[in-house]
């Protein structure tokens, strides 16, 4: 089911508008991440999709049906809460069966379907345990199975991985991907971790201050950020930001450019036909597979992942250099222009 927002806003009772003119369409059958810092509006957006919150203005569509005034149950969404919200007094099987029991599905049908779902999320050997006896990852799986039990129109996951330790997080994000692809249900998940979103999502919506910053595939978000916020939020290590004035003697920059962002991997050993910056090496470190060097360029520090020994000049790879104006909007750079 594709989900469409038409000029949706949300204003809290105290008069503060927290979401501004949300206008987007989430394609059917894809895994979509809502990414942004806390307070950016991503959980609020999720709750608007779920129907737990009502839009102040604008319209929400599921497919061709307008659902703006419908509640969560009528919209038929499945939701996995951050703390999983499993019923602690019920066994795993009873938890998964519960939505179907409420929908008065025949007993043998619902038990069979619950077992199939448990198998899908790989908790079929835990059916008679209580949630308290399961690990965080297993509880997460049960919560997903319960949400899938009613054939949801959309599956919503609120910070699904934040309660797990680092290793489990990597495992579970792959699991969410696998389960989403196996069921084909349109899935929306909220996260503040860019690498999580980058690894599993088909499309990522970056939200900040209740405004959509960019809605794109992970790769184009990284390679083609529309504004300074997205460039800064996506990528690890964080993009280097240097005032345009310091770079104008080395690069041809648009007149209104204020800041230039340089991806760490765009700073390389000198090559022909590429802009060159004079630098001094400050520190070069290796962390297992990863390398990181801190270079000094005038008054500014640049972090790079490509330099492995002390150098006095570096080249810039133009695919990783972005110019932004005072408002943080991306400006095109004319690479064929002459140096001033």
């Amino acid at each position: 089911m594709n989900v469409r927002f038409e000029h949706v806003t949300l204003t809290y009772n105290n008069g503060v508008e927290v979401l501004h003119d949300m206008d987007f369409e989430l394609p059917d059958g894809e895994l979509i991440a809502l990414l942004g810092p806390s307070g950016g509006g991503k959980s609020t957006t999720l709750n608007l999709v779920s129907g737990l919150l009502r839009a102040t203005t604008g319209k929400i569509f599921f497919g061709d049906d307008e659902v703006t005034e419908k509640d969560a149950l009528q919209r038929g969404v499945g939701m996995v809460f951050q703390n999983y919200a499993l019923y602690p007094h019920m066994t795993v099987l009873e938890n998964i069966v519960f939505p179907m029991k409420m929908a008065k599905v025949a007993k043998d049908v619902r038990n069979e379907r619950a077992r199939a779902l448990a198998k899908l999320v790989r908790v079929d050997d835990q059916l008679n345990k209580k949630p308290g006896a399961l690990s965080g990852g297993q509880q997460q799986r049960v919560a997903i199975a319960r949400a899938l039990a009613k054939n949801p129109s959309v599956l919503l996951l609120d910070e699904p991985l934040s309660n797990l330790d680092a290793r489990l997080r990597v495992e579970m994000r792959e699991e969410i991907r696998r389960i989403q692809q196996a069921t084909g249900v349109t899935t929306i998940f909220v996260t503040h971790d860019q690498s999580e979103a980058m690894h599993v999502a088909d499309k990522i919506m970056v939200l900040n201050d209740g405004v959509i910053q960019q809605f794109d595939s992970p790769q184009s978000l990284y390679q083609n950020p529309q504004n300074q916020f997205v460039a800064r939020f996506i990528g690890e290590p964080v993009i280097n930001e240097v005032p345009a004035t310091a770079l104008r003697e080395h690069l041809v920059l648009p007149a209104t450019a204020v800041t230039v962002g340089i991806r760490p991997e765009a700073i390389k050993s000198p090559v022909m036909d590429a802009p060159v910056l004079p630098v001094t090496a400050e520190r070069i470190q290796a962390f297992g597979r990863d390398r990181q060097a801190t270079l000094r360029f005038g008054d500014y520090r640049l972090v790079t992942t490509e330099i492995i020994e002390a150098v006095d000049q570096v080249s810039l790879d133009k695919t990783g250099v972005y110019a932004f104006n005072a408002a943080g909007e991306r400006l095109p750079i004319d690479w064929d222009g002459k140096r001033v």
Partner: peptide, 28 residues
């Protein structure tokens, strides 16, 4: 936990069923 009520609501439990399946066991 308020989230249990949200979950039960999404699972299609009406207020009486939420009382019966969530409140009563949780306060037992």
């Amino acid at each position: 936990d308020q989230r249990l009520y949200d979950a039960a609501m999404l699972d299609g439990a009406n207020s009486w069923q939420r009382f019966w399946h969530v409140t009563l066991p949780m306060i037992s």
